[in-house]
């Protein structure tokens, strides 16, 4: 199986590569259109700021490639946010794969939310074998409000969407690669889709 991690200079991608390696697969880091197109599974990572990440995607033409992919694609954290219509962070137009916007936490709780929180209302094969209210590691200041593409929700003052699915596209706000055994199990589920 050929797993490609989209490499566009966004944050900590070694962790994802290593997490996949621990599951017994070798992932390639790539920004090459053909290599990404021909992959069996594509992971779209992202840590950092939305508008600068989107600029990097545009400079390599990956912004037009990603929405056309037909194999399973998993966006993680900022990767998931960029797959939405719009990100409030940096007033950024997203890839429009998920039909929703990403807005800033606006409650009395601390921002960024950093740490382990629970995922619930789990739908989709991505969460096969994962129990309701399992803890996942999250670090974020912006969130996706509830919508009908949600396959997991989390509560941080408000209940919001912590995972999304549309056709072959999946997105998680949490970091499965940093979420201990349960996170590894979700990555394994994705690789087995």
């Amino acid at each position: 199986m050929k797993v490609v991690i989209i490499n566009y200079g966004a944050g900590n991608i070694q962790s994802i590569k290593f997490a996949i390696k621990r599951l017994g697969f070798d992932a390639i880091l790539s920004d090459n259109v053909d290599e990404i197109k021909n992959a069996d599974k594509v992971i779209f990572p992202g840590v950092g700021e939305a508008s600068s990440a989107m600029k990097k995607l545009k400079s390599t033409g990956l912004d037009t490639l990603i929405p056309t992919l037909e194999q399973p694609v998993l966006g993680i954290c900022l990767g998931m946010q960029l797959m939405c219509n719009y990100c409030e962070e940096g007033d950024t137009k997203g890839l429009g794969i998920f039909d929703c916007d990403v807005v800033k936490f606006n409650n009395n709780l601390k921002v960024p939310q950093i740490g382990w929180n629970q995922i619930e209302n789990l739908k989709s094969r991505l969460f096969q074998g994962i129990k309701e209210k399992e803890h996942m590691y999250l670090v974020h200041s912006f969130y996706v409000p509830l919508n009908n593409e949600a396959i997991a929700t989390t509560n941080y003052g408000i209940t919001y969407v912590s995972a999304l699915k549309r056709n072959n596209f999946y997105g998680t706000q949490f970091h499965p690669e940093k979420s201990s055994q349960a996170g590894a199990h979700i990555l394994k589920n994705f690789l087995e889709l």
């Binding site: 962790s15 290593f18 997490a19 390696k21 621990r22 590691y137 670090v139 940093k178 979420s179």
Partner: peptide, 10 residues
């Protein structure tokens, strides 16, 4: 690099 390779928490 070695820690990232082995450890699955932040």
């Amino acid at each position: 690099m070695h820690v990232a390779e082995k450890v699955n928490i932040p």
